[in-house]
């Protein structure tokens, strides 16, 4: 760069001039990305690779020296383990139902909020509060003050005597999770509603569309990327739900409300079976990856990643 200034008429062909400049520029551009990339690899990928290694071992943490290679034995055990299959089913049910219900409720609340009325700011503040409550605190509060069979508010309000956590453990856990995540969905959808162009809505009105028609044909399509984002982020967090189950039902009664994170936790930290819980972890990752590839594609389309990439 220093000598080039002095030699403007250099006979160097332009193509090589451009290429060498591009090569050094490419590394200069990558430099700011590398620390984050290396850090993420170290904190997430390396432990996962170790998990894969453990999954081929038989190793019980309380019996030192028990560690040895067993090939695919752990995987065979995982797929013949009926509790694992039940936990898998519970995880799917919990994720799908919670995301869907929270989104519907969030949409409803967002629509209620998307107009001007007295106290709108206060109502919004109230509605986001469950998202700001510590999930652990929320779970404990629901377990006691809401669901308790003797003193809980639910039985008092409905005048019934139901043992919610024993009879409907999964539903009870899901109620708490939905309550926690609805504000998140609501905020995202509200952002989408408010980003709508007023002119387009007015155009629909002028074209003779009624409220319902406008909502279905104009608002929903415009909201779709916000809904996708809400589903994706919600699913990422809800699929990993652990606090609610750990604190409300301990996966019980029996294994009725056990999901995969909780089951793997149990195998690892209560059963001390490193090999098997690792194998489960690997299976979960493999399944998540399949779902995630699909979801990522959705995300990339919704957020137009090519934007800003020349």
């Amino acid at each position: 760069m220093t000598t080039l200034v002095e030699a403007p008429q250099s006979a160097e062909p332009p193509s090589t001039r451009t290429r060498s400049r591009q090569r050094s520029a490419a590394w200069k551009r990558r430099a700011p990305l590398l620390p984050a990339l290396l850090f993420t690899i170290a904190v997430t990928q390396v432990p996962f690779l170790v998990t894969v290694f453990y999954s081929f071992q038989s190793w019980n943490m309380v019996r030192p020296g028990s560690q040895h290679f067993v090939g695919f034995d752990n995987y065979v055990d995982v797929f013949t383990d009926s509790v694992f299959l039940q936990a898998l089913g519970n995880t799917v049910t919990l994720t799908v139902v919670c995301v869907f219900v929270a989104m519907l409720l969030g949409l409803g609340l967002a629509l209620l909020l998307d107009r001007t009325f007295p106290g709108r700011g206060i109502v919004r503040t109230l509605l986001i509060t469950p998202f700001l409550i510590l999930p652990a605190a929320g779970a404990l509060l629901w377990k006691t003050t809401m669901f308790d069979p003797t003193y809980g508010l639910l039985n008092w309000a409905f005048g019934v005597e139901v043992e919610w956590l024993s009879n409907y453990p999964l539903a009870a856990v899901m109620t708490q999770i939905v309550w926690q995540w609805t504000p998140f969905m609501m905020l995202l959808i509200l952002a989408g509603l408010q980003a709508q162009s007023r002119e387009v809505l007015e155009a629909a009105q002028v074209d003779g569309a009624g409220r319902w028609r406008t909502f279905v044909s104009i608002t929903l399509p415009q909201l779709s990327r916000y809904l996708q984002l809400a589903v994706l982020l919600g699913a990422i967090y809800i699929v990993n739900s652990f606090d609610a189950i750990y604190l409300m039902t301990q996966g019980g009664p029996g294994t009725a409300s056990t999901n995969l994170p909780y089951y793997i936790y149990q195998r690892a930290f209560e059963g001390f079976d490193v090999g098997q819980s690792s194998a489960m972890g690997v299976v979960v990752v493999a399944m998540t990856l399949i779902v995630a590839t699909f979801a990522l594609r959705l995300m990339f389309r919704a957020f137009d990643v090519s934007r800003g990439v020349k």
């Binding site: 760069m1 080039l4 200034v5 403007p8 008429q9 332009p14 451009t18």
Partner: peptide, 18 residues
């Protein structure tokens, strides 16, 4: 923008690479 071929001069200075 890069100048891929030719030159640009401002005053009597070649600024193509500046």
């Amino acid at each position: 923008e890069d100048v891929d071929e030719g030159t640009i001069a401002i005053g009597d200075r070649d600024v193509t690479q500046l």
